[in-house]
Structure formats: C-alpha cells, structure tokens
Design a protein around this nucleic acid. Structure first.
Lengths: 233, 233
DNA sequence: TGGTTATCGGTATGAATATATCGAATACGT
DNA sequence: ACGTATTCGATATATTCATACCGATAACCA
C-alpha cells in the first residue's frame, strides 16, 4: 500500500483517466459505429449526450482523454473518433485469452463472436471435468486445466477468463499466475488473491442484481408510502 | 431532470445509500456466507476488509446502511449480518422475471440456478426465432415475444431481462414497457429509451473489457517505458 | 461581409465518494 | 480488578468525479 502510493506520487501519470470515463468509452464506441453505418460522418457531444442520456460536458471530457480534437460548430469526425477510441483502448492489437470453466456462462462467452471486434480472442478453454475435456465448443478445444500453466507462456497468452463456480476460482487463478498470465477477467463472485502486479477485473452479476432488487423493493415501498402521504394530506 | 432534482431536494431520503456501497454489499454477502459455512459466528470490519481488499472504515460505513449494529472488540454477528444484507437488498421476497433473447447468454442465465438464492426467479423465456419458440431450456418454456406484453401483467411480473443482440433490444424494451414491467436488466450494449419511471440497469461486458484491455496495453507500454527510463539513467 | 449560433477546450465549482481521526465501549490478559 | 488492545460509531477531511461556466473558433445565414 505504501509502496504503490509512493509510486503514484512519483509518477502521477499512472492513471490519467478516471475509471468511470474509461467504462463509458465502449458505449460511445457502440453508438458511433451505429451512427457510422447510418452514414453520419460528423457528430457533436450534444448529439451523443442526447442519445446516450449524458450531459454534453461529460461526453466531451471523456472523449478528450482519447486525444481526439474536435472542431467548433461541427464536432468530431465519426470515423476518427471511432479510431481514437479503439486505439486508446488497445482494441487494435488482439489480446488472446484462455477461458477456464466451461459451464453455462463459459460456453456463452466462447460462442460470443463479437468479442473479436473488440480486441479479444478466446483461443482455448479449460476445465477439470473429464466429461468436458476433449470436447470442442464453438470451435474451441476444451483442455485439462493442468495444461494451462504450461501452454500459456508458450502461446504467449496474457489474459485469463474465469467462469468457474466461486469455490474453484482461486485455484484457477493460481494456475494462471503460474502460467505468467498478466490480467484476469473474473466472473466468479470471489476476491482473488494474486500477486500485486496482476490486473484483476471482476464481473459481478450479483452487484447489478443487488441495486436492481434494492431499487425495485424500494420502489414498491415508496409507492405505498406515497399513497399514504397523499391520503394523509 | 428539473423535476427529479426537485423531488430529491424535497425528499432527501430517496437515495440514502451510495451506488458503490450498494454494489459492494453482495460481495460482503458472498464472503459472509462463506465464513458462516466455515463455522465463524462473529466478524470484524478489519477482517472483512483484509480478505476483500478494502479498508475497514469503508466496510463499516457500507454495512451501517443495512442498519446492523456491531459490538466493539468483537464486531458483528455473521448470521445477523447476512440477514441484514438480504433484507436490505430485498432478497427475501422473490422477484419473478421474464428473459428475452435465448442466445448463448440468455441460455446461460436461464441455467443459472444460483439466482434463486438472491431473490431472482426467471419464470419464462421469450424469443422471435420460430426455431426456438416452443422449446424448453433449463425447464423454462420459450414463448413468442408478442405474448410478453399480455402475460406479464397477468402473472404480475415486474422484472425483465434483455439478452438479445443490440439491434433488437429497443423493441424488446418497448414490449416490456407495454407489459407494465417496472425494471429492466439489460445485457445489450445500447442505451434504452424508456419512460422515466422504469428502472434500467445495464450490464455492459464491453466496459469491463475496455478497462482490462486499456490497462493491459498500458502495462505493456509502461514496461517498455520503464526500461527506457532505466537505460536513460 | 458581418452578425449569430453552435460547439469546442480549458478552468472553476460543486457533489459524491473514500479515507482519516477520535472518543466510547467491550473483551481479554495480567 | 485494572490496564491494554481492539473495534465500533460518528464526525471531519481529502480525493475523485461530475457539472457549470467562459472565451475562442468555425460554420451558417442575411
């Protein structure tokens, strides 16, 4: 903690873009690609904001991080903007990935063709279940997990995707670390213990579900409450 | 925008918990359930923070929103804490949901048994593909989409899940609105246009992928940069 | 050609979130 | 029984992020 803070202070450019901005960039990208197919060549922050439900200033600030420069009155070139985002996110160079855990979700991700457009290519799957090993799912071989640590360095794989149940995730992460994998996309709802230099991103469906059910429950509660308030008036 | 702001001002209790805290609660829940199965009955914020990579103060603040009270020196009762979170998130009362889009991801979600432990029960699936309609997937019937708006009110379904391609998502959302659905969990990478009172939560895999690939690309770049810096010294 | 309007880029303010600090309370060891 | 260490709850500060503002610039129109 102390060490990394010191590093931050010495090199303030380590995190030049806010996380929320970074997460909005793909939204813009989707939208812009859509606009481009519709034949639109130039676009303003106001238009983007209107269609995406964001205030124009925020859009402008987000886009500025990609280094794009716009022109007053006309905005940005759509194609330049798309390229700027792709370059900024590193979607030009393909990241090859291993996926571990060929359950429902793992299978779904293996079959998700569109990832290839965003710099991600899942090249092989792993599992411990003998019934699954040896199968081909969506044109990808399912290999035994214990081969991962050996194969990853040889194939120069830097990214691992974990779609196992929570109980198995840590062991899988350990294997990935052994295989010199640099970044982990973790769909299991556990905090992985990995060396500090490994990048871990968690995709926790339950966290979204939590806000959703909280709001829904509250909504129903509030409705009742409002009714009572009205009656009280 | 003005209206809702005014409402916020008049009733400041509308959003008493920060979104980030809300999203961390399921993490705590997972962790606590895990601890409970290990026979641990009491736990402190320090311990939770250590295992989950958070500072104790943040854990404490998050947990306070659930209304739980702890005791100095020993912390909280694990079982009470679990119940407090579940109650707070509304995971006690089951939300029944319709899912639309029986592709890879939709199928995966239909098969995800664990949702039932978190107050979510997907009761039926919908699609427009005649090849899929009439099938049973993971014990759930696949019905034609145009039946949704009629069935939802009759079955008192308040939650809709969209796992269609981006192009179809808006039309599906429109159907859901017609069916008086209150909340939408949207996996398609588009901004849905719906009436203001509808709760929409987007699950954008690409946004995580974006930060991941950005960091990975940058990591590789930074490594090179550091090497050059060292050589320059 | 000159005024008008929309937009950008930069800076300043404000809101939301995270973290630090402090007194009080409780268990534990001596 | 008393001091010590740990933790809670509450308040205060700091950081991060979102939004508002303002001057400058380029297109559009009269």
């Amino acid at each position: 903690m102390n060490i990394s803070n010191t590093l931050q202070v010495n090199r303030p450019a380590v995190q030049p873009i806010p996380q929320p901005s970074l997460k909005r960039l793909p939204q813009y990208h989707h939208y812009l690609v859509d606009m481009e197919t519709k034949g639109i060549t130039r676009i303003s922050c106001s238009a983007i904001g209107r269609d995406l439900g964001l205030v124009p200033v925020q859009v402008r600030k987000d886009l500025q991080y990609t280094g794009i420069i716009g022109k007053p009155k006309t905005g940005y070139s759509v194609s330049e903007l798309i390229q700027a985002i792709e370059k900024f996110l590193g979607w030009n160079n393909v990241n090859e990935a291993f996926l571990v855990g060929v359950g429902n979700l793992g299978t779904a991700l293996l079959g998700h063709e569109r990832f290839s457009k965003f710099g991600l290519r899942i090249v092989a799957a792993f599992d411990t279940d003998p019934a699954k090993i040896g199968q081909w799912i969506h044109q990808k071989a399912v290999l035994p997990l214990d081969k991962l640590a050996d194969l990853a360095p040889r194939m120069n794989i830097l990214l691992g995707i974990i779609t196992t149940p929570a109980e198995a995730a840590q062991a899988v992460a350990d294997e990935m670390v052994k295989g010199c994998i640099q970044a982990i996309w973790n769909f299991a709802p556990v905090k992985l213990k990995v060396p500090e230099h490994i990048i871990v991103h968690n995709e926790d469906l339950y966290s979204t579900l939590a806000s959703l059910s909280w709001k829904l429950a509250r909504r129903l509660g509030v409705t009742v409450q409002e009714k009572q308030e009205k009656e009280a008036v």
